[in-house]
Design a protein around this nucleic acid. Structure first.
Lengths: 244, 244
DNA sequence: CGCGGATTTGAATAGTATCAATACAGGTGG
DNA sequence: CCACCTGTATTGATACTATTCAAATCCGCG
């Protein structure tokens, strides 16, 4: 409406935010134009190479961030080195654990990742000001909890074959959200994770993951090229391998 | 201060709430006296016997509630009947999944349980009014997420023995929060769950759970009487069996 | 073309599950 | 009060799934 007029306190959305996915679907969608401008002033976009440790376990956190592209894995590690991935964050997820000094997971770039970093204090102040932001944060946290519980079922009760099928299914649906609804549509994508990551996510060894993938391949449920490129001709068929 | 005077809109906390644990540590602690009165008018205390299904999977929810005593288990079930417990709620936890029509877990009373039930709509209205309540809800959800992730590590990477030890440790610490800090103090308690529940929580069979418990017993780490009563002379020792 | 990391494949082993039998506790009725 | 019954838990023998260790293959890249 009044796009050519702006007063001192209430100007347009910052340049950088306009084309940002997080502006709409992410937490920034819950911010007022004023807040967006404030946040933008202290925000810092940065790229991280695959494998970079973003936040160490029990490390004090100074920044929160939004995932703009790529995949971040949240992992837990036992003293003897056993590792479990406990969460995967895609764009436009918010990355960070409000109200705690230190994280009890470590965050690592699974693929090359672009983040938009914010000082912890700014976000926390805005959380107190803005009920909308708190709402958005609550919604994201609730759906992360839903996902975590879904994976608890997978980890605790599914066979290796069902685990791998469930994983491929989850990634496929994340990359092509339409496939969630239309099961007949074929989907193909580049897997942003290594076999070792898959194993760490599923509580298996890389050998077992590999064996189960060949089974799926031989059954014609997935096609795999160059190790990373997956094609799924029939999602419903894959679904039947996941134990649902 | 002005405890002998009250105006029309702002009276004292309701009788029933005064001695209620949820009033302090639970979500009710985030409500204004006014809100507490309103909520109390529509609240409904009720006891449920162990084994009662409180909310079925994919069932529409009309009530939220606070757990006043006992333990509620949240479970997920596969079509073929395999079951996984994905959460345990103790007093004064809030029970329910805001912003979703239907639950994707089912809730069952693991022990005899006392709940304080509220109409869904009342809570949702208060969530919009009260930033404090939203805050409290966010905090509970975040710590449930932390717990879920801790269990993902347990489910995915620990051995049967470590799983059982971790479980006993978790229950002990839940029942005696002081033990969290003082590892030297012996703890004893009545387990509010059956062996079958333990198995469903840990992704094991009851036979494996039983075998691992006897191992712990023979190692002198726990003493078990009448199947349900557990004593742990040395929490630190138990901790060493949990894989940390 | 050849190197190094990632992935697949193979054979032997270990850890849980499964199936079956037994023990135990609490409650009921003779 | 005891014998019985039922549901819960323990113990034992065997089968099977996934892990472990080892080797071969594939892939990207200099």
């Amino acid at each position: 409406m009044s796009e050519d007029r702006k007063d001192i306190h209430n100007s347009d959305t910052p340049e950088l935010c306009r084309s940002c996915e997080a502006r709409h679907r992410g937490i920034c969608g819950a911010l007022s134009p004023d807040q967006l401008i404030t946040l933008n002033r202290v925000a810092n976009r940065k790229e991280f190479a695959a494998g970079t440790e973003l936040v160490g376990d029990s490390e004090e956190i100074h920044n929160y961030s939004n995932v703009l592209s790529g995949v971040v894995k949240l992992t837990k590690t036992m003293i003897d080195g056993r590792e479990q991935i406990v969460g995967l964050q895609f764009a436009p997820d918010f990355l960070g654990r409000p109200f705690h000094k230190e994280s009890h997971v470590s965050a690592e770039a699974a693929s090359n990742v672009n983040l938009c970093l914010f000082p912890k204090t700014t976000i926390e102040r805005m959380l107190n000001e803005s009920s909308n932001l708190k709402q958005k944060m609550l919604e994201q946290t609730l759906s992360e909890l839903d996902e975590a519980r879904e994976w608890m079922l997978t980890l605790g009760r599914k066979t290796a074959g069902e685990k791998v099928a469930s994983f491929v299914l989850m990634i496929a649906r994340h990359i092509d959200p339409e496939a969630e609804l239309d099961n007949s549509k074929p989907v193909s994508f580049d897997l942003p994770l290594t076999r070792a990551d898959m194993a760490d996510f599923l509580g298996l060894t890389i050998e077992t993951v590999s064996r189960q993938l060949t089974k799926l391949r031989k059954a014609g449920v997935v096609e795999i090229e160059h190790n990373r490129h997956f094609s799924i001709p029939d999602m419903e068929r894959l679904d039947r391998f996941s134990g649902s």
